[in-house]
Design a protein around this nucleic acid. Structure first.
Lengths: 217, 217
DNA sequence: AATCGGCTTGGGAAATTTTCCCGAGCAGCA
DNA sequence: TGCTGCTCGGGAAAATTTCCCAAGCCGATT
């Protein structure tokens, strides 16, 4: 095994399903210029593999068990701000996309994309460009027609506390009682949080909060 | 039946993610004796492809948009009771496994399985044997020892499918559209599921579903 | 054959919540 | 001093949830 490919793009593959990784590896390596130098099936290993292999591009699925994929992105970026990370997942919710880019991802491609589009995204990200699949662009375009602002960073203390209790399973009345607020205020916060984060559903809110490490499931 | 074995095993690949199919195809075909003769990305196409290609084994992911994968299994089996169907998905909840075998599946393998185990399962199913990955066997074993069983055991097939889509972030309208139901029906199911499971909040429902492995956060 | 029960599908109507707009108090800050 | 952002809630229309009910279907039981 020679050390590094003088040309070509080295890739770190992160996905919790072994056979899925195996498949991606074959698809990517059939391109000739793409080389999978390492794999990982969780956020912690992904960070470790990044440190030892310093790949050109990290391709990772953010929906992994345990620690959040977003956390992995932040960790990797904290170590090397020039790291190129391509999120590759089946989710296409605007909240997750924004959260990923917010965390430092360079690209976001869904698994519904054409294989050629995925390969193109890897190359684009390697060149330092931003990349996203058509459906993601569509979702973001749709969503950006109304000013929603950023993600959890945009939430104030009160909002975060209410969101935390809510995703933990508390009812509106319980939250109001815990925080000595009127039910009406909690309702308004609930609504505000949903518009700010772009979550269209309570379930999406729970998933987003979990992805941001606000709650454990 | 015929001398299929001498010629290898023909496979119909059903998964809604193109690049995932691409990956599986390469993994399976690298075995030499496995040949992917067709692909499909939804239940309807899967049934059509089965009719025209009559493959030895159908490898399908039951978590597809639109009609339930369970329905696809039943359709295929209705046409040919000797069809071999290997469910291949990321879900590992006991109720889903039981429902799949009940619908006529011959095997159930999770995407967390070793690639070699998946290939072995395809061969086993082609031989007419029942196959499941270790983690699935474990889940079923645990569950059979529990007197109460999973909370989700009290849910019907439709309820589970609706719950799965809901906790994945789908709106009521989207679910109704996916399953060709009226919004009213989905609402009623939503309510029924909450009362059956005892969840008082949508967030609790999401957490419960996650705890049962119905969804991944 | 007839009945029973369970699953699926939806209507109806009251109760409740969500949605969005609004103002007001209060801090920090330029 | 005025601006800005967070916190807190009222109001009213829109939408959803809640609960009850019924009909069709299918498998099992008698």
């Amino acid at each position: 095994m020679t050390e590094v490919a003088a040309k070509g793009i080295s890739v770190l593959l992160v996905d919790d399903h072994p056979i899925v990784r195996q498949g991606y590896r074959r698809v990517l390596e059939s391109q000739g210029d793409l080389h999978v130098v390492a794999e990982a099936d969780n956020a912690a290993d992904a960070y470790g593999a990044f440190k030892t292999h310093d790949p050109d591009v990290v391709v990772l699925d953010i929906s992994m068990p345990g620690a959040s994929g977003l956390e992995a992105i932040r960790n990797i970026r904290a170590r090397n701000p020039r790291a190129r990370i391509l999120v590759f997942t089946m989710h296409n919710e605007a909240v997750l996309v924004k959260a990923a880019f917010n965390a430092g991802a360079s690209g976001f491609v869904t698994k519904s994309s054409d294989p050629a589009a995925v390969v193109a995204a890897v190359r684009a990200v390697a060149r330092g460009e931003r990349a996203m699949s058509d459906d993601i662009a569509h979702v973001l375009a749709e969503e950006s027609l109304s000013p929603t602002g950023s993600l959890l960073d945009q939430l104030g203390e009160r909002e975060i506390e209410i969101l935390r209790q809510f995703v933990s399973g508390a009812t509106t009345e319980q939250i109001a009682s815990h925080l000595n607020l009127s039910v009406k205020t909690v309702q308004n916060y609930h609504y505000l949080i949903k518009t700010k984060t772009g979550a269209r559903t309570d379930a999406q809110l729970v998933r987003l909060a979990a992805a941001c490490g606000l709650t454990r499931i």
